[in-house]
């Protein structure tokens, strides 16, 4: 008989009203009005990351809630100030983070990863949150040896993790839940 462990509590969808508990002012609650959870205040080059989550029909997921975790400018993690949360705008599905450009983060065995943002996606109809990464279009050289990108066997799918540059310091990242450009999601 193998060793038994407790089983993880199973996931359920965050539902359409996830904002009440996670972004109360977004839900329209007159509490915590001063919280701006989609802004990271940390030393480094300020950047804007905006985007949208699209469903299998190409329609925006207007009730999505996203969380961001990333390295600081020096390529370190575990900094309590570097975490953020954004709600899609109910009318359009657009979301936005104001953060800083991450440094290159170490991988296992002394290898390095290309700079990236980790994003989790929660929404109605998503039974367990989706985990993806956003890389920067100007880091092609570092991406050539990135351990996560290199694990993607279908080379054309690697592009789904690279943001589009709108202008200096401003990026757009479209997350597609299905379709021929389906974003790569991780099980880590």
């Amino acid at each position: 008989m193998p060793v038994e462990y407790l089983k993880e509590t199973p996931s359920q969808t965050a539902g359409p009203y996830v904002h009440i508990g996670t972004l109360p002012s977004h839900a329209g609650l007159p509490v915590r009005q001063n919280e701006t959870l989609n802004v990271v205040e940390a030393p480094g080059e300020k950047i804007v990351v905006e985007g949208i989550v699209l469903d299998g029909s190409g329609a925006p997921v207007k009730d999505a809630m996203l969380e961001l975790y990333q390295a600081n400018a020096k390529g370190e993690v575990g900094d309590a100030t570097i975490w953020a949360r954004a709600g899609a705008v109910f009318e359009t599905g657009e979301w936005r983070f104001d953060t800083i450009r991450p440094g290159a983060l170490e991988w296992r065995g002394g290898k390095m990863q290309a700079p990236h943002l980790t994003l989790l996606i929660f929404a109605r109809g998503i039974n367990i949150h989706l985990h993806t990464r956003m890389y920067f279009p100007e880091d092609e050289a570092a991406q050539a040896s990135d351990p996560a990108l290199n694990r993607i066997e279908q080379i054309h799918r690697r592009r789904t993790l690279v943001a589009e540059k709108v202008k200096d310091g401003h990026y757009r990242f479209v997350i597609r839940l299905q379709g021929d450009q389906e974003t790569v999601f991780f099980d880590m």
Partner: peptide, 8 residues
């Protein structure tokens, strides 16, 4: 879930 589930 039908349109919001990744297929890959």
């Amino acid at each position: 879930t039908v349109l919001r589930s990744p297929k890959c």
